[in-house]
Every structure is written in C-alpha cells, then in structure tokens.
C-alpha cells in the first residue's frame, strides 16, 4: 500500500523553465499548489507523500522535501 497521507511539501526548482509551467505540471500530477514563489524559485503546497518521486521527475524540479516546522519557543523563553 502506498502512503496516501497528505503532506505539506516544498518544491525547489532549477530555474531553467518558467516557474508557472513547473507549477502547471505539478498541478496536473496531483499537487495542490498553494504558493508560487517567483523570486526564491520555490513552490509550496499539499500532496500525497506517495507522489514525491513522481514530482521529482518533472522537468525543472530540483528537489521535493517535506515542509519542516520552525519553532522559536513560546513568549518569554529564556533562550531563543
């Protein structure tokens, strides 16, 4: 059974194709695009974890990683 759980993903592009074209191909492959970040050349969104390898094969895609959380701690933390 492949992993059908939906995950937040970050796609890094190589910049040799218009980023909107890469986003189109990602959408067609089942990626729910949330942000197309033109300047940093990344696309963020949601998709089943099982599709990551398929996204990696799309022309212009350099890397696909699971979005990682950032946490500087609650207000008043001694060290941040």
């Amino acid at each position: 059974m492949s992993d059908q759980s939906i995950q937040a993903l970050v796609v890094t592009t190589v910049g040799d194709r218009p980023i909107e074209s890469v986003a189109q191909d990602l959408r067609a492959a089942g990626f729910d695009v949330q942000q197309v970040l033109e300047f940093v050349e990344s696309i963020t969104g949601m998709a089943p974890a099982s599709k990551v390898e398929e996204f990696r094969r799309i022309a212009g895609v350099a890397d696909v990683t699971v979005d990682h959380p950032i946490d500087i701690g609650p207000p008043g933390a001694a060290i941040s």
């Binding site: 300047f39 940093v40 933390a77």
Partner: peptide, 30 residues
C-alpha cells in the same frame, strides 16, 4: 506562539527580495 513553517519563511524571503531589501534578517531556524 513562535511557530511557523518553511513555506511561510520562504514566502517571507520572496517578499523581501521582491521589495529589494538589502538585508534580510532571520532570527529563526529548525
């Protein structure tokens, strides 16, 4: 609460570059 995601911080960087901020300060990390 001090939490965020990589996607949010990338969106922030994108905004800062679009606005040609010579300095982009990020006191955060994973």
């Amino acid at each position: 609460s001090g939490g965020g995601t990589q996607a949010q911080s990338l969106a922030g960087i994108n905004w800062a570059i679009a606005n040609r901020c010579a300095v982009i300060s990020m006191s955060l990390g994973a």
